[in-house]
């Protein structure tokens, strides 16, 4: 089992979700995030005081998948989020020790889908 964390541009969320749906990956957690990578933030100015290089608004998607779904998930996220520019985001993949469905007590791969 893997835990996939993707940081993407906020406006790409709908496309990423649509691509994931095509791969039958429909369970996910999405949170608002701020981040900075190579892409510079936008300078903000408040009454003449500049705040340079602020963090940019991003969206973080977290998905737990069975191994068979991993590559499909990754390629779906890339298809949905890629513009070919700095700031498109990153995908991180972790090993996942266990997964428990609270309602039934199921564990492992069965609980993921």
């Amino acid at each position: 089992m893997k835990y996939v964390v993707a940081i993407i541009k906020p406006h790409k969320l709908e496309q990423v979700k649509a691509e994931l749906e095509k791969e039958e990956v429909t369970l996910m957690t999405v949170v608002d995030a701020l981040g900075c990578g190579r892409q510079r933030g936008v300078t903000e100015v408040y009454r003449g005081v500049k705040e340079v290089g602020n963090l940019l608004h991003k969206v973080k998607i977290e998905i737990a998948v069975n191994d068979a779904f991993l590559e499909r998930t990754i390629s779906a996220i890339i298809r949905g989020a890629r513009e070919g520019e700095i700031g498109d985001g990153k995908i991180f993949v972790f090993d996942l020790n266990d997964c428990i469905r609270i309602r039934t007590g199921e564990r492992g791969g069965k609980a993921i889908g």
Partner: peptide, 18 residues
């Protein structure tokens, strides 16, 4: 347009996320 007009046209944000 993606980043939003607040940040790109006025260099201000209506709300802070944090």
């Amino acid at each position: 347009e993606y980043i939003g007009l607040d940040l790109t046209q006025h260099h201000e944000a209506g709300y802070t996320l944090m």
